[in-house]
Simulated assay, not measured.
Amino acid sequence: MMQAVATTRISILRGTTTDAYGDEQDTDTPVATGIPASLTEQSRRVTTRDDPTPRIVRYAIARVPARTDVTDQDRVRDERTGAIYSVDAVSSMANPAVTPDLRLDLRRTT
């Protein structure tokens, strides 16, 4: 059971193949579909010491049920919008009373 309020359903995509030139390419092979997720996109204004010009960086965070089979090598497709994200990190908070949702740090690729 998920603790966050689901805003969409996602598919988890996994796997790679090699093209005619020997380059590795991602495949869109779903390993799981219809997973409820709370998916939010946000933006943040950032500057660095080397470049004080402000830039807008967009990122996304998803929360999925605790036992979802997802790794930081996977991609996620929002079934509502069709947007595809790469999973940068998977984390969870420690809680002795309940198993908390997984947090996915995402980067939009399409």
Rank of each mutant, 00 (worst) to 15 (best):
Y21S: 12
I84G: 04
A6Y: 08
V90D: 04
T18E: 15
V90E: 04
A4D: 05
L102P: 03
Q25N: 08
A4S: 14
T16N: 09
I35H: 04
A6P: 03
V5E: 07
R45M: 10
G34T: 04
T53W: 09
D50V: 04
D50S: 08
A4R: 13
A94D: 15
D23M: 02
A37N: 06
E41P: 05
A83G: 02
V70W: 00
T29H: 02
T18D: 10
A97K: 11
R67E: 12
R49P: 00
R45L: 13
V76M: 15
D51Q: 11
P54L: 07
V70Q: 01
D28F: 01
T16Q: 09
V31F: 02
L39Y: 02
G34A: 05
T47V: 12
T48V: 03
L104Y: 03
T40M: 11
V31N: 08
D26L: 02
Q42C: 04
V64S: 10
A32Q: 11
S38P: 03
D101W: 02
T47M: 10
T47A: 09
D69Q: 10
R108D: 01
T18A: 11
R55D: 07
G22A: 07
V46M: 11
I84V: 15
T109F: 05
S92N: 07
P96A: 08
G34P: 06
S11N: 04
A20W: 11
D69I: 10
S38A: 15
A32Y: 01
T7Q: 07
A89T: 10
S11C: 06
E24T: 15
R80E: 15
A60R: 04
S43A: 13
T40G: 08
P30L: 05
D23V: 02
Y59N: 09
I56K: 07
D19L: 03
L106R: 04
V90Y: 01
D51M: 02
L39C: 05
T48S: 15
Q42H: 13
I61Q: 14
V70P: 00
P65M: 05
S43Y: 08
D69T: 09
D72Y: 09
M93C: 06
D51Y: 06
D26G: 02
R58Q: 13
P36K: 12
V87I: 03
S11Q: 03
D69K: 08
V57R: 12
E24R: 10
R63V: 08
D23R: 03
V5D: 06
A66Y: 12
R67L: 14
L102C: 03
S92D: 05
A89W: 02
I35T: 04
R55N: 11
P36N: 10
T16W: 00
V70I: 13
V57M: 07
V98Q: 12
E79P: 09
V5R: 10
A4Y: 14
R75T: 00
T81I: 06
T27Q: 05
V57E: 14
